[in-house]
Simulated scan of single mutants.
Amino acid sequence: MPSLAQMTGSLHIHNFYIGKLKAKQEQLFESDPETVMLLDNVVAILSEHAIALAENSPDKEFAEG
């Protein structure tokens, strides 16, 4: 099992890329709807993984944050 520091770092990386993808979706919304849908799917997968990381954390505050 990864350490709490590794899990926290991984969650921060997930959230960073989720934010980047959402910003790119907004930029492409009008011009490239197919790419927006693809990015939406990637965001959903990363979000699910981030939730799983938080739920599996031994630190209750980490899981709630």
Score class of each variant (00 low, 15 high):
60 K>A: 14
18 I>G: 01
27 Q>T: 07
25 Q>S: 06
64 E>T: 03
24 K>T: 02
27 Q>P: 03
62 F>R: 03
12 H>K: 06
57 S>H: 09
26 E>D: 03
36 V>N: 11
37 M>V: 08
28 L>M: 13
5 A>L: 15
37 M>W: 10
25 Q>T: 04
48 E>V: 10
52 A>Y: 15
44 A>R: 04
65 G>M: 06
19 G>M: 08
42 V>H: 06
36 V>E: 08
27 Q>E: 14
7 M>V: 04
24 K>Q: 12
59 D>Q: 11
38 L>M: 13
29 F>P: 07
28 L>G: 01
64 E>S: 13
27 Q>Y: 08
37 M>L: 12
43 V>C: 02
29 F>D: 03
38 L>S: 08
16 F>A: 03
20 K>L: 15
46 L>S: 07
50 A>D: 12
2 P>D: 10
37 M>G: 01
24 K>F: 10
26 E>Y: 09
42 V>L: 04
3 S>Y: 07
62 F>G: 00
31 S>L: 00
19 G>L: 07
35 T>W: 08
36 V>F: 12
59 D>V: 09
45 I>D: 08
31 S>F: 00
17 Y>S: 01
57 S>W: 03
7 M>Q: 08
63 A>P: 03
26 E>R: 05
15 N>A: 11
44 A>H: 03
46 L>K: 13
30 E>T: 05
35 T>A: 09
23 A>S: 15
32 D>L: 07
16 F>Q: 10
7 M>H: 01
1 M>H: 14
33 P>Q: 13
58 P>V: 00
35 T>N: 04
17 Y>K: 11
42 V>Q: 13
40 D>E: 14
61 E>Y: 12
20 K>W: 10
22 K>S: 10
59 D>W: 14
33 P>K: 00
3 S>V: 00
15 N>D: 15
1 M>L: 13
21 L>H: 08
17 Y>G: 02
44 A>V: 01
44 A>I: 00
11 L>V: 09
11 L>G: 00
64 E>W: 07
58 P>N: 02
2 P>G: 08
62 F>E: 11
57 S>R: 04
47 S>L: 06
15 N>C: 12
6 Q>L: 04
28 L>T: 09
20 K>I: 02
3 S>G: 14
13 I>W: 07
6 Q>A: 12
55 E>F: 04
14 H>G: 00
54 A>V: 08
32 D>I: 06
29 F>N: 09
31 S>N: 05
11 L>Y: 08
1 M>K: 09
42 V>G: 02
32 D>K: 05
57 S>A: 12
49 H>Q: 08
43 V>P: 07
60 K>E: 15
28 L>E: 12
54 A>C: 09
2 P>L: 14
2 P>Y: 12
2 P>E: 15
21 L>W: 13
58 P>M: 01
59 D>E: 12
58 P>G: 00
4 L>V: 06
44 A>T: 07
62 F>A: 01
46 L>T: 01
13 I>H: 12
27 Q>M: 11
55 E>A: 01
65 G>L: 05
32 D>S: 04
40 D>K: 05
38 L>R: 13
